[in-house]
Structures are given as structure tokens and as C-alpha cells.
Nucleic acid binder design. Structure first.
Lengths: 135, 135
DNA sequence: GCCGAGCATGCGCATATGCTCATATTCAAA
DNA sequence: TTTGAATATGAGCATATGCGCATGCTCGGC
């Protein structure tokens, strides 16, 4: 993914789509797509899930997600760059927290929407609704 | 991406995360991630943008997006499978439309959120807000 | 039945992305 | 300062994914 820090994002003058209304749409969609891309990884969602109530240290997140510390740090850096999480240092531990609840809310809505499209008795549906309700 | 048609999604018994509360979270996050993945492509967002007002034929979408017909068809198939768009055949033309406005709304909210994080004078911000307002 | 327009799909390539291993860096305690 | 714990990062690998090309399929008109 790799999202440039918010502030600008290089509005290239190229690629304005042969046919469509040539507003500055392409760069916009590119940025939006990259943000969706950040949410398009199970591990990252798991990390967000782990820190969406309170901030957590990296090691706590590692324990919660069951993946490598290396991996967790990488995903956290990426989300930090995207401005989705924030960082706080305490001693030699580093705590991460959600930077913007809206992103969690978008996840919640996505869950609800997917759940509503599943068969009522599908087991996944229950899990999705439970997940959505918790956030 | 490739999302299984809604109805079930194979709730594997494996991989329950070493540490965390072992609810059926992993399959849930996997599914949610895949849906976000569908929205994580500029071309697909462009297609959604093209059909979010009225249904459009494939060739119209090709013209609007400025990409290959092959490419458009592929993305449309993917989104059809994900249940994000719907298909209607009229003669030898095929029309696609948004299946669930909620997905467009999620895009809109993402746009707004990203725009709000950009500097007020960043040109991208204007485009994002404009894009969000139109949906 | 034949043909052309419109759409879908198999194949191969180039790139992007996530994961793991090993190592560097940062901080606190001794 | 030295040491060890906690976190971050570089390198390499395996896979996933988007794109273009060529081809197959479907439908209406002739």
C-alpha cells in the first residue's frame, strides 16, 4: 500500500481518461483506493480490532493477533503513515491507538452490509453481526 | 480478489490465532478484507462512479473509464460475483448497475474522511469533496 | 444459417504485496 | 557504559493481482 502522509498527494497532470468528464478524478480515486487497500488485509483489520477499544503496546498486539512482531510492526508503520493509527512511546514500549474512529466505523458498516447479504443461518453472518455490534 | 458468492464462505476450523479471544474472527476479517479489496482499485472505483447514477452498458463504461473492454469486463465480473453490481441483458448489450447503494455510500464516506485529513488548500481536497458531494 | 457487434475469458507478463529471517535501533536498568 | 528487552527495518521469496492480447461466446439482423 504505502500511503503518502496527508497534506497533498501529487496531483499529476497525466492520465485524465480518454472519454469521461475530465475533472481531477483519477488522482482522487487513486488515493481513495489506497486507503481502502489499507483496510483490505485481514491482519491489519485484526490489529485495528485489537486496538479499537484501548491503545495497546506492540507486544500486546502481537499476542492478540498471533502473528510475528516483525509483521505487526510493518503493518503498524503502514497504518501510521496512512494516518489511521497514532503512536505513543512509553519507556521502551510503543503504544498504538486508533487515530480516527471513522475508519473503524467504516469497517463496522462494511461488516453489517456483508452480513445482511448472507443467508440468515450462515454461521459467518452471526460472527459478522457480532463483530459489527462490538464496534 | 475473487469473492465467493454470498450464502456462506467456508468457515474453516483452522487458524484461530494463538493469543486472542478465539471467536470466529479470522474468517470474518478475511471476508471483510476481501470486500475492501474490491474497493481498493482505482479502475473499479471509476466503474462504480460511472454507473452510480444510472445503469450503463459495458461499452459506455469502457468509454467513461478510458480503459480496455477486456479490463472493464473483468472488473465487472469480479464485482458481480461480490454482489456489488447487478447485470441486465438487453439485446446484445449488457447493462450494469449498483446492486447496493451502501457500497457507494461507504466510498463517499471514505472520500470525505480523506478530504478532511488533507490541508484545506490541497487541490486533492477539493476534488475529494466534490466527488463525495456528487454521491 | 451466416455475419457482425457487444461482451466474456484463457494466457502470459510485470508489478505489488505480505511474510519470514536476520539485523539494526531505541530505551531503561544495573 | 554495558546489557537485555522492545520495536523497527532491510533482503529475499512466494503469491496475488491488474493489464494487454488474442480468442471464444451470445444475440440480433440479414
Amino acid at each position: 500500500m504505502a500511503i503518502k502522509r496527508p497534506a497533498s498527494a501529487g496531483r499529476g497532470t497525466g492520465a485524465s481518461a480518454k472519454g469521461g468528464a475530465t475533472d481531477g478524478l483519477d488522482p482522487v480515486l487513486g488515493v481513495v483506493a489506497r486507503y481502502f487497500g489499507v483496510l483490505a488485509e485481514p491482519t491489519r483489520l485484526k490489529i485495528l480490532h485489537a486496538i479499537c477499544d484501548d491503545e495497546q503496546s506492540v507486544s500486546a498486539i502481537v499476542a492478540a493477533t498471533g502473528t510475528t512482531q516483525s509483521n505487526v510492526s510493518r503493518h503498524l508503520s503502514l497504518m501510521l503513515n496512512a494516518g489511521i493509527v497514532e503512536r505513543r512511546r512509553d519507556g521502551c514500549a510503543v503504544y498504538y491507538r486508533i487515530a480516527d474512529p471513522e475508519f473503524v466505523d467504516i469497517c463496522r458498516r462494511m461488516c453489517e452490509r456483508i452480513a445482511s447479504r448472507l443467508d440468515m443461518q450462515a454461521p459467518l453472518r452471526r460472527d459478522l453481526m457480532g463483530f459489527a455490534a462490538r464496534h
